[in-house]
Write a protein that binds this DNA or RNA. Structure first.
Lengths: 340, 340
DNA sequence: AGAGTGTTCCAAAGCGCTTTGGCTGACTTG
DNA sequence: CAAGTCAGCCAAAGCGCTTTGGAACACTCT
């Protein structure tokens, strides 16, 4: 059942039927009702390929997926996706993942824009001076960044959490509890979120007249193993920290293992706070000692990004609005006063 | 730059140019070369929307993503995706995720097939008598299942790992080491892979004249917390098992925690083997006691599924070929002889 | 009554590709 | 040498929608 057939059985032109269906004003209410009715009755659904060719709109949002043998997709991605999908579903938006060589995403961005494959894209965890943002900005496709960049000479729409504030609060709490040696196990130092978190910790330290020594910060890919290694190195130092702030639950697993291996205890010898993106399958309250966290649901962020993307596509949102979500500091058993 | 312009500057018809570009035989080699050359020089890329409308082929593969507030996307998904993307990239295949209400995926399948949005779909972890398989089978869209179903009255193409064999081997090893009470912490009992694994364990037990008592099997969603709970219940029983086979690394984390909480040790009091899908961020060799595993890279499976999907799209693969990968049993420190 | 103003609808021209059916001219074949 | 074959090319008809530029008609206003 296509437009031609439908309009024929209604004795109307394709124009009128099309307009009636798409809510244009130049068609009488009675005719519209007749058309809508017939369309529903015959289960007519406009062919998206045809509509696409005619309008250039695809009804999909895009994401360029960096791939390669040495490239690991962040496990956070799946949670973000949950949220995104949840919203997208209610709006019949599909998500197109375009795999790209991690060393050359630009080609792929250009392709999907030139081909008008998607109406908007989202960009995850932009780094400082991220080239993807500059690119999509000049290409003129609607987009939203999840996370922030730095040092760009233009504004752009984004959704981010207050990483600096969160880690500032976490560090401040530990300092208030009397900790004098505070360490940070952070994500990759080229990531903006890691930079912001470090900034937050440094600011808290500075307020107490302290600094974050070189040996008290590790910036690594967020795996269990790296968490372990960083913690080992920190705790085996001649002057080990009494508190650690850690950028992910997965790394915190490694930290806990290291603490155990060294015969230390939490929070007796070490206080620990980690960032929690809220995974259904690994919860901080279930750590050997319930873990204090800075918490922000990455899933909700996914839903919000989808919502704003949809708004941008339909012209309801414009400009370079940035949105920064506050982060909860959830105190559990893993923090205590500094050992005496 | 479109076909019309290109053919105009070559003084050829659109027909000929199109055929030259698409490798049809009815065009001379010399002409083909000229066309190819000009196309490359002017950066001509056929408009996919137009091609789609004309051919009905989209150059994309699809996946229906179950969503909903209560639905969690499996963290394995992201690894599978890594592999899929890795292959898809080299073939300029995009992946379309169509979010669906988890309680009604059928509508979405029908939509993407009716709209010809994708050329093929893959179906993850089909359950016994999975309705999705029956559906796509009758809808006639090329597909491949990752995992297997049971009790279907037709054959279908799939890629699966030998779950039964893997868990049979794991259980057999433990029995050979003298364990008399063996427990299984499995995934959701409605999942085919869980059924197969249970079958493998039961078969090994049967060979030794034993059975898997009701209290020695837990079938639960694979989270750390569920692993912990199941292990607690098992180990606090009046007759606790001396060995556990566990369906995922994440659950194994919980098992290890339970063992610790109860003041027991691995492998002194308990031998443990878990299934490892090979995550970059959580490795069995880094468990407090290096974990023995049944190992199979879900990432490689993703790549293979993409490869076969591509083959099916281009007609290189047909029929209901099933492919079952063997699973490695990797023995590490977490297993030992039964305690005396 | 004639001009002006809306309202409602339509024919037809795209959008950019693939594919059908056919034409041309050169080359074999008996 | 007439008939048949075949390689190489083309014009035009789709694919199914949106949108442009009117046309027709009823109505109000001076």
């Amino acid at each position: 059942m296509n437009l031609k057939q439908l309009s024929h059985m209604l004795s109307l032109s394709q124009t009128t039927v099309s307009r009636a269906l798409n809510g244009y004003p130049e068609v009488s209410e009675e005719t519209r009702r007749r058309v809508m009715d017939a369309a529903k009755r015959h289960g007519y659904r406009p062919n998206p390929s045809a509509r696409r060719l005619a309008t250039g709109k695809s009804g999909m949002i895009g994401y360029v997926l960096p791939t390669g043998a040495a490239v690991d997709i962040d496990p956070h991605f799946v949670e973000f996706l949950s949220g995104l999908g949840d919203y997208a579903r209610s709006h019949e938006l599909d998500l197109v993942l375009s795999p790209a060589d991690a060393d050359d995403e630009e080609t792929t961005y250009r392709r999907i824009v030139a081909n008008r494959q998607v109406d908007a894209v989202y960009i995850s965890s932009p780094r400082p001076a991220d080239r993807r943002l500059a690119l999509v900005n000049t290409l003129g496709i609607p987009f939203i960044a999840h996370g922030r960049s730095e040092g760009l000479d233009f504004d752009y729409p984004y959704l981010d959490i207050d990483n600096e504030g969160a880690f500032h609060e976490a560090a401040r709490l530990l300092l208030q509890l009397g900790h004098k040696r505070l360490a940070l196990i952070n994500g990759n130092e080229r990531e903006t979120f890691a930079i912001h978190r470090e900034r937050g910790v440094r600011r808290a330290l500075a307020a107490s007249g302290m600094t974050l020594g070189e040996r008290l910060i590790h910036s690594v890919t967020m795996t269990e193993e790296n968490g372990y290694r960083a913690a080992r190195r920190l705790l085996e130092d001649s002057e080990p920290p009494t508190a650690i702030v850690c950028s992910s639950l997965i790394m915190a697993l490694g930290v806990v293992r290291a603490v155990r291996d060294l015969g230390l205890t939490i929070p007796g010898d070490l206080s620990l706070i980690a960032h929690d993106d809220v995974f259904p399958w690994l919860r901080p309250e279930n750590f050997p000692v319930p873990l204090s966290t800075t918490r922000s649901s990455i899933r909700l962020a996914g839903a919000r990004v989808a919502e704003r993307l949809a708004a941008r596509i339909s012209g309801l949102e414009e400009g370079a609005r940035g949105e920064v979500w506050p982060v909860d500091l959830v105190v559990r058993g893993s923090v205590a006063g500094a050992p005496v």
